[in-house]
């Protein structure tokens, strides 16, 4: 039983990574990260269920709080980026180029 939930969690997590590495749209990259956080939450809850302990729930709550904080900041950054360049393309921002 638990294996199914965990494998689903891994699949969702991998899809999140795929989104981060292959997409150039800032918003989609951001949402992919949210997806990864959710995948982690699923794993927490699953473990919690099968160990019959509620610590996983608490951790999931914390992850949500962090996700909320991240959302607030990331969206502010997205707005700034859009203001500066008028684009949502991550490849426009390549100041780290060696």
């Amino acid at each position: 039983m638990i294996q199914n939930y965990l494998i689903l969690s891994v699949i969702l997590f991998c899809i999140g990574i795929l989104g981060v590495v292959s997409r150039r749209n800032v918003l989609i990259v951001f949402m992919s990260i949210e997806l990864m956080l959710n995948a982690a939450n699923l794993a927490f809850i699953a473990f919690s269920r099968f160990h019959e302990s509620m610590d996983g729930h608490v951790l999931a709550l914390m992850v949500m709080a962090v996700a909320a904080a991240e959302a607030a900041l990331a969206l502010a950054v997205v707005i700034l980026l859009h203001k500066h360049k008028g684009k949502l393309d991550t490849d426009v921002f390549s100041l780290l180029k060696g």
């Binding site: 709080a65 962090v66 909320a68 904080a69 991240e70 607030a72 900041l73 969206l75 502010a76 707005i79």
Partner: peptide, 13 residues
Amino acid sequence: LLLVALVGAVVLA
């Protein structure tokens, strides 16, 4: 952390 994020968002945006 939430408070800091709130302030940070206000400052940034």
